[in-house]
Design a protein around this nucleic acid. Structure first.
Lengths: 225, 225
DNA sequence: ATCCGTAAATTCATCAGATGACTTGATGAT
DNA sequence: ATCATCAAGTCATCTGATGAATTTACGGAT
């Protein structure tokens, strides 16, 4: 059951060697790397192991294998580990990062929201209810849906994508560590956010989200010390 | 040369099938999935193909293969594609997201910076010079180093990680699409950021970064329309 | 009955060989 | 010069076999 953390296998070693060569600039983007047989000799492992190693790097977006042609370098920057490190960065850091996106999203939503966006946000706000309606789990889902609609209204897909990531990551962290004893968000504060966005004033919208986030951030700051 | 976008191979199909089963909750976290021989029959592909498919999911963090024991579900949420989608979200969206992180980082830096942080930021600001010193490439590097030092001073590793990602992603995009005709940042604006952080006023620091970012954001907004 | 060491079974890791599918460049006929 | 055809190169896939690590089953000692 107990496993040493750094025991590795040939496939991972081979993939790591290849990755280091790619990131080190041994081949340029678009260039073809040695074929499987040559890699077998270079890495001193069997062809099957080479293929598994290459497969890993293809899935990371570093390589591109084309049947009949060869395997080519697609990118020399590896961003695959970034989100893993974000996940391990602590709850306070994650919440702060999400808050930053949330504030900016509200700012952009004030400038760009469509009538449809406003209708959806209002509807989700009204449907949000209280924690007593249908249990904690269901309330959390409704709360998340409401906040997500704000980010959607920003029209920024990058922010929305990261917001979804943080929502999932934070939920995972809270489930595994805390027992959900964070301050409950104020209901009137939610309405204030929608109202601010509706007026089209970005600074007011940003301030509304920021003041809404403040209690949780303060609590997390306290917990992290 | 022309390649249909959805031509796939057995390994990717098998990996996708497995991924769908995992995300669909067929097995719970910690549960052991069928062994390679069984997967060979379930997926109707050879063991080698099964192994490559499993490798992909292991590298994505969904599975955990243990020699002699079995292959277990590590996570049922897949965040591996999030950054890829962010990369494809357009330059304006990426820049806005990074700006959001940058502003929040300055705010946090004002509250948390150490004397060492301040020293480093000042040093990098002075070393930044102009675009005429050592060429455009070198100047870009110094500029990035300065901005990164602000994010470092925030003490938030999640924001720093994402900031690095955006820096690389934006650089890649600019290289491949634009020809670097974005507004040059003002030098005095940089000094204003450091000064604001040094006073410890988070709102002033945030405002300094925001006004510094404004010209580029406006230009990108114009380009995106 | 419990504990513990050994053997057996299970499972993933790795290697080797062979065949097929696809791409690319060369060849040759028109 | 153009185009169809062919040959070489390369990745994709299958099959079989052996090794290494883990787990389980078993049997003896206490």
């Amino acid at each position: 059951m107990m496993r040493p953390i750094n025991r590795t296998n040939l496939t991972d070693s081979a993939a790591e060697s290849l990755r280091a060569e790619i990131l080190g600039g041994r081949w340029t983007v678009g260039e073809r790397i040695p074929n499987e047989t040559a890699l077998t000799e270079l890495l001193a492992v069997s062809r099957g192991t080479v293929r598994e190693a290459v497969r890993i790097l293809v899935s990371k977006g570093l390589l591109d294998a084309r049947q009949g042609s060869g395997t080519y370098v697609r990118s020399t920057v590896d961003t695959s580990g970034a989100l893993d490190r974000v996940k391990r960065s602590g709850l306070r850091d994650q919440w702060e990062a999400r808050a930053a996106l949330d504030v900016e999203a509200a700012r952009l939503a004030a400038l760009r929201h469509t009538p449809l966006d406003l209708e959806r946000m209002t509807r989700l706000l009204n449907a949000r209810g209280t924690v007593h309606d249908g249990g904690r789990e269901a309330f959390g889902q409704r709360d998340i849906a409401f906040h997500r609609s704000i980010v959607e209204a920003s029209g920024n897909r990058a922010i929305l994508e990261l917001y979804d990531f943080f929502t999932a990551a934070i939920l995972e962290t809270i489930h595994s560590t805390l027992n959900g004893d964070l301050p409950e968000p104020d209901d009137r504060a939610h309405a204030a956010i929608v109202a601010a966005i509706a007026t089209g004033d970005p600074d007011r919208a940003a301030a509304a989200v920021r003041s809404f986030m403040a209690p949780v951030l303060d609590e997390l700051q306290r917990l992290s010390q």
